[in-house]
Computed example of a mutant assay.
Amino acid sequence: MQGRVLVIAGSDSGGGAGIQADIKTITALGAFAATAITALTAQNTLGVHGVLPVPPAFIRQQIEVVLSDVGADVIKIGMLGDATTIETVCDALTAFAPGIPVVLDPVMVAKGGHPLLAAQAVEVLRRRLLPMAAVITPNLPEAEALTGLTITTEPEMHAAAASLLALGAPAVLLKGGHLASDTVTDLLAAAGTEAFAAPRIKTRHIHGTGCTTASAIAAGLAQGLTLRDSVLRARAYVRAALAGAPGFGHGHGPLDHAVTVDVGRLG
């Protein structure tokens, strides 16, 4: 086991996304996961049925005690929920995690459509948290909310990636799965922009793909991989997990996070 990742995110009782997907992904890729839970959700493949926020003081305490003992090589951030939680996490990272790279998945809406970030919190996320991140991993609806742009084509993805970089994050992995195409193209933008394209895997079992991708990138960075290599391995892992999805549930089902155990660890 190599590399420590502290995940700050919400819990998914259905096991397909959130903290549960993060822990499975990081473990499957050979790194160690610690957590600071921001919210509990009553959730299954059909949707989010309830959300119970964790008090801000306890979120801060989880971050502090993990970092003061176990430590972290990378911090991965997922669901935060509201402006107060974002402010709490930013203050805690400033106090306890200076210099630790942050992978930010700006979770805003669940697969079933339930909002996971209050509308008034988007500006706080944009202003405070984006500049703290080493890389952000939005999907297209999240990128639209952050930039105010409409993204329906690959050229518009390039414009949105540039706009996201202008907000302060040094790197962006803009995920193109929401475009209507048989090919899924993701853009990695930093000093330059590189496109990664692959045939779409046609399945309804896509719950947790965003959480999984960001956590896989975080594991790679924690293990000393470059950002590009971390993204490439994360994409390979997610595609294998999608292809091997177990078929559980009646809605957006989970991936096979144990695919590295099933078929051998990915290079």
Rank of each mutant, 00 (worst) to 15 (best):
F32I: 14
R127Q: 15
D105E: 04
G177L: 04
A145P: 11
A191C: 09
G224L: 03
T153A: 03
I23F: 05
S181A: 13
N139C: 11
H252R: 11
I201W: 03
S68M: 13
P56G: 13
Q62H: 13
L187K: 05
T150Q: 14
L6H: 12
G264Y: 00
I26V: 15
P106L: 01
I23Y: 08
I206F: 00
L188A: 05
I26T: 08
T183R: 09
K76L: 03
H178G: 02
Q61I: 06
A95Y: 04
P155E: 07
R128N: 11
T226Y: 07
E154K: 14
I37M: 13
I75C: 10
G15C: 01
A36C: 10
R126S: 13
L266F: 07
I63R: 02
E142P: 13
G18W: 12
L188Y: 08
A134L: 14
A134S: 15
A198T: 12
I100D: 00
V172E: 01
T25F: 04
R126Q: 12
V184G: 04
P155T: 09
T27S: 15
V74P: 07
I19L: 14
A169P: 06
P199Y: 10
T153L: 07
D69C: 09
A133N: 10
A243I: 00
M108Q: 09
A31N: 08
T183N: 01
R128C: 07
V135T: 11
R239I: 04
V54G: 00
K24W: 09
R239T: 11
T260V: 02
G168H: 09
G267Q: 14
I37E: 01
P246L: 02
S68Y: 03
T38Y: 10
I26W: 08
I63F: 10
L221Y: 04
A118W: 00
G208C: 03
L40T: 09
G244V: 01
D12C: 09
K111I: 00
T84M: 04
F196V: 01
G15R: 02
L104A: 14
V124N: 08
G210M: 01
D82A: 06
I37L: 11
A236P: 08
L255F: 06
G168D: 05
E87L: 11
V231D: 01
R228N: 02
A118D: 15
I151S: 08
S215H: 09
V70R: 10
L40I: 15
I86W: 01
G224N: 03
A243T: 08
P138K: 07
K111Q: 09
I100F: 13
H158M: 13
L225H: 10
C90S: 14
H257I: 02
A159P: 06
F32E: 10
I37G: 05
L232W: 00
A95W: 06
E144K: 08
L6F: 12
P101F: 08
M79R: 02
C211I: 05
L149D: 06
A190G: 12
I206Q: 10
T212K: 05
A31L: 06
G112W: 06
L225F: 09
A97S: 12
A159R: 15
L40M: 14
P254A: 05
M157Y: 12
V103M: 04
I19R: 07
H252V: 04
L225I: 00
L149M: 15
I136F: 04
V172L: 05
